[in-house]
Design a protein around this nucleic acid. Structure first.
Lengths: 195, 195
DNA sequence: TCTGAATCTATAGTGATTATAGTTTCAGAA
DNA sequence: TTCTGAAACTATAATCACTATAGATTCAGA
């Protein structure tokens, strides 16, 4: 079975039609200005079919399966070059992804802007990131000889995964990203630099 | 005007009746097993009245106004004794509140357990905490001679406010709280302790 | 006492999401 | 090739959170 059968191809087509219809309509009228019925119509499927394809609901329509998102980060930790710290690997990997990527094609840029500007979509995006906490914690634990259930490990994983939502809407996302990673690497600098 | 007029008293009574009805029914049948109509019935008001009292919706029913939550933390930072660092003040303050409080009366303990065990309520609780990011950032900035918009300041505020959701469900919440504060104070310890 | 705003009510929506039951279509076995 | 079961799809109806409207009651303050 080299590719997919016609069946799975049709399924993928339907899912893509839904994504594209949703992105187009959201861009035109805003997230709240579009009903799932209109999206289903635009994609020429029934409402029930829409929900069969997108069990997580309206917000998930424009996200391709979120399971992939954390794979990059876990892999970046596990396969980092010798001598590179865990946080260096994470910082580099994240700088190229999500809201921090530069030089995106215009379609993806529109999607990213839509997500950043829409609270419901931002929240869902965060949920997808946070879903990767456990795998990332395991990668970090493996790289530093600790227990994945260690609260310090879990906290680091969580805090790294929160960065897109925390820094993604800043005027200079890259600078913000680096500031947060500096905090995680060195801790909060106290006492402050003397006047 | 020493106390409140009859009018505001009735309003407070209604709101309290709603809270109590919601907490009782949620405890009995679980959050998803109760409809807002049933809660309104139990409190003997109409559905429209319920939503007039609780504009944020079903999840907000068992929370008393969230505006108070961050006041503690901001005050703890601003009024900390001389010589105490910002993070020491925050650690102490938080250890006594939210999911970390010990020796709660049974009613409040039931409520806390319900929140921790119910994803929708946990999320809303987090939202209430996060709403205090700006004031807390201002307090931290004031205490350390920085700009409240500084990403390091915002990140610290955010990360502190995430602690209840991150550590609240741990077997030993106090130990978890301390582990996370240690991370924020000193940063991620790398390289790891040699084998 | 009068007036206006606040509170509450019933009623009827909207919109997301789920449940049900039946139809078409394809994949793989016989 | 033909049969068969599962998968994808459909229409329909229901549930539930939440909002909008318009009218009734009640209290605060002039």
């Amino acid at each position: 079975m080299p590719t997919m059968g016609r069946r799975e191809r049709r399924k993928a087509q339907t899912r893509q039609a839904l994504s594209q219809a949703a992105l187009r309509l959201f861009s035109e009228r805003g997230y709240d200005g579009v009903t799932v019925a209109q999206i289903a119509d635009e994609a020429d499927v029934s409402i029930a079919t829409l929900f069969a394809h997108v069990p997580d609901g309206k917000e998930a329509l424009i996200f391709d399966d979120g399971a992939e998102r954390h794979v990059w980060l876990s892999a970046a930790v596990r396969e980092r070059p010798p001598g590179q710290t865990v946080l260096q690997a994470l910082r580099r990997c994240m700088a190229a992804r999500g809201p921090f990527a530069t030089d995106l094609p215009p379609e993806q840029r529109r999607k990213r802007d839509l997500i950043v500007a829409t609270p419901a979509l931002r929240e869902y995006s965060r949920k997808l990131w946070i879903a990767g906490e456990q795998p990332l914690a395991e990668a970090i634990a493996g790289a530093s000889g600790r227990d994945p259930a260690d609260m310090t490990v879990r906290a680091l994983a969580r805090y790294v995964l929160e960065i897109p939502e925390l820094a993604g809407a800043e005027p200079d996302p890259s600078a913000a990203l680096n500031a947060v990673f500096d905090l995680l690497e060195s801790g909060w600098p106290e006492p402050p630099p003397p006047a």
